[in-house]
Amino acid sequence: MSPGTLSSAYAACRRVNARYGKTFFLATTLLRPEQRPAVHALYAFARWADEIVDAAGVADRASRLDEVERLLDEEPSNPVLLALADTMRRYDIDRSLFTDFLASMRMDLDVTEYADLDALGVYVHGSAEVIGLQMLPVLGTVVPREEAAPYAARLGTAFQLTNFLRDVGEDLDRGRVYLPQDVLAAHGVDRDLLQWVRRHRRANDRVQGVLDDLVAHSYALYRSAEPGIAMLSAVSRPCVRTAYTLYRDILGLVGCEVLWRRVAVPNARRFAVAVPGAGRALLARASLARAATP
């Protein structure tokens, strides 16, 4: 694998991250330059699998996911796999994390709803917790990695639940409801009512009650994950703190309108969070450079 080929592969992953993961991409700019390509590779791989799952009218999605998993153990054959293979080697990322991720992607092919948070948690382990665990070696820690791992997994879950709340309407169009059925039932909400709200673009108190409960649960997850940020290497904390803040901010925008439009943190708020984060990142890098100077 020539350096030029590998550089091009990472550049392709960066473009995927920049196009589809704007908030996440903004946060990655606060990492050291040598860390960013690995994060882009992890993101691009996850996005690739997600695109396979969501491809409309594709009958062989399961076999395509099987092919992706098989390719992980062969000579890399495309830019995403080239960059991912290098990232896995460079940071000694556990191969089983990708197996678990793809297992959750396969669940999306035939599981359309979840009875409760415990059932949803089986899916979220592979779709989100393992992403936090994949990231951990890249970010680095000031404590043993296994001590930081539960917090990284929990933050992945918080991000995923935030996405579920933001994307209720889009997921409905794909035939999926990630909001737990027991929470829906407690408020007298079913799939038909969710679809009615989406179709008519009208708020509903019962639906709002469901969203409020799950927003509160998600805020609690963010609080329980927050101590893990201090366990990361100093140069990585500004990135994760920025992502933490901006994703958590999405929760404050969640109302019935998520069923008919995609809410987003305003650009002014993004940069109000990112600019101080950039300052902290520069200070952390300067401190690291001084410590490395004989």
Rank of each mutant, 00 (worst) to 15 (best):
R191P: 09
Y10C: 03
L161C: 15
V80P: 14
L133S: 01
L288W: 10
P180H: 11
Y219S: 14
E51H: 07
E69H: 08
A148L: 02
G121L: 03
A274D: 02
N17A: 15
A9V: 04
R191D: 11
P3W: 00
D182W: 05
M1D: 10
V275C: 04
C256F: 14
V80H: 13
W48N: 13
E34V: 15
R47F: 12
R280P: 02
A185F: 04
L120S: 09
Q181I: 11
R14E: 06
G156D: 01
A220T: 08
L179T: 03
R191C: 03
A55Q: 00
H187F: 01
I52Y: 01
D92I: 06
Y247D: 11
V189G: 00
N204E: 13
Y222G: 01
H200M: 14
Y114Q: 13
N17I: 09
V122H: 14
A281P: 02
N267P: 13
A289K: 12
R95M: 03
V207G: 04
V80Q: 08
V189E: 01
R191V: 12
D66H: 06
P276C: 12
V111D: 08
L251E: 13
E147F: 06
P144M: 13
S7D: 13
H187K: 08
C13L: 08
A49I: 02
P137E: 02
A56K: 07
A274F: 10
R89H: 14
R64Q: 10
E147C: 09
L194Q: 02
S8R: 09
L136R: 04
R36K: 07
N78Y: 15
S233I: 01
A38D: 14
V235Y: 04
A272W: 12
A216T: 15
R198L: 03
A148E: 03
L283A: 15
Y222T: 11
I250R: 00
R61T: 04
D50L: 00
D171W: 07
Q160I: 12
Q134P: 08
A27I: 11
R201Q: 05
D116T: 05
R89Y: 14
V122F: 07
R290I: 06
L102Y: 00
A185S: 04
A220H: 07
S104E: 07
L251I: 09
D110L: 10
V138T: 02
L283E: 09
M231R: 15
I250M: 04
F101Q: 01
A62S: 13
A278E: 01
V130A: 04
L120G: 05
Y114F: 15
D50C: 00
P37N: 07
L184R: 00
A234M: 08
R32W: 02
A281S: 04
P266R: 05
D73L: 02
A103N: 10
S2E: 09
D94M: 07
Y10V: 01
A286N: 07
L253Q: 10
A153N: 11
A12L: 11
L155Y: 06
A291R: 11
G4A: 14
C256G: 15
P33I: 14
A148I: 05
C256Y: 11
L184Y: 01
A12H: 15
K22A: 14
L253E: 07
A278F: 12
C239L: 08
A289V: 12
P294W: 00
L81P: 06
G209H: 01
S8V: 05
E147V: 13
E67K: 10
I250S: 00
H217I: 13
